[in-house]
């Protein structure tokens, strides 16, 4: 078994299993903690608030623009770029078809891939440098923030290094970091990719009950 076969074979299946079980465990584990039912007389719908808050917090309020400016630029640039890469990069579409779903969809042309990758990198670097030079973010950041960022960066970087798709070793390197990233994910703050739904939703439900969604 070559190294590539290993990271795309057994290692990949172990990683994706840990990822799936870990994410579900943590997500459901949070819900399972439970919360009290609100006994006060409602003035609005909690479930509508739950949904509304999830969408409301995608957009920042202009009054906080000074601080959110860099974050909305970096945040959107990174996350959109990453999603485009994740689901529409040609090798990913092929991989998803072969290893996960059994069917594929049209992939991005190479130039669009490059632009998406640059947007993702620019955003990630912007967010990370903000973390190291803003006193507020320095105060609240921990090792998990940096490890998560650097691992994501390495996954993206090794992916782009393999862009030529001519060298097996680079593809294997990318897969190696993907596997590490997948295993790290459920134990880390990367979980925000899923828990944001609960976080926004619970606040929306609490205040939706009061007739206002903050």
């Amino acid at each position: 078994m070559t190294f590539l076969e290993f990271v795309e074979g057994p290692a990949w299946y172990v990683a994706i299993t840990i990822f799936t079980i870990g994410v579900l465990w943590r997500f459901l584990g949070i819900i399972a903690i439970g919360r009290r039912t609100d006994m006060s007389a409602p003035k609005g719908s909690a479930s509508a608030g739950f949904v509304k808050a999830i969408f409301r917090h995608f957009l920042p309020r202009t009054i906080f623009a000074e601080r959110t400016r860099v974050h909305i630029l970096g945040g959107y640039s990174f996350h959109l770029g990453l999603f485009i890469l994740l689901f529409f990069a040609a090798p990913h579409v092929v991989f998803i078809k072969a290893h996960i779903l059994g069917f594929g969809w049209p992939a991005l042309p190479r130039w669009a891939f490059i632009i998406a990758a640059q947007a993702a990198f620019a955003g990630l670097i912007l967010l990370w440098v903000r973390r190291i030079c803003d006193p507020v973010m320095r105060q609240i950041s921990d090792w998990d923030d940096h490890v998560g960022t650097i691992l994501t960066f390495l996954v993206m970087l090794t992916g782009c290094l393999a862009l030529q798709e001519s060298v097996e070793a680079l593809r294997a390197l990318h897969m190696l970091f993907v596997n590490i990233w997948l295993i790290y994910f459920p134990f880390s703050r990367l979980m925000h990719a899923f828990t944001f739904i609960l976080s926004r939703g619970y606040t929306g439900a609490t205040y939706g009950h009061r007739g206002i969604v903050p």
């Binding site: 490059i114 640059q118 990198f121 290094l161 862009l163 680079l170």
Partner: peptide, 23 residues
């Protein structure tokens, strides 16, 4: 052979990050 891999990877990343450096 190994350097060929490293060089190819370096070229890809150099071309990728270059335009961002202009900005």
């Amino acid at each position: 052979t190994a350097f060929g891999v490293v060089a190819s990877a370096s070229m890809q990343s150099h071309n990728l990050f270059g335009p961002l450096f202009i900005i």
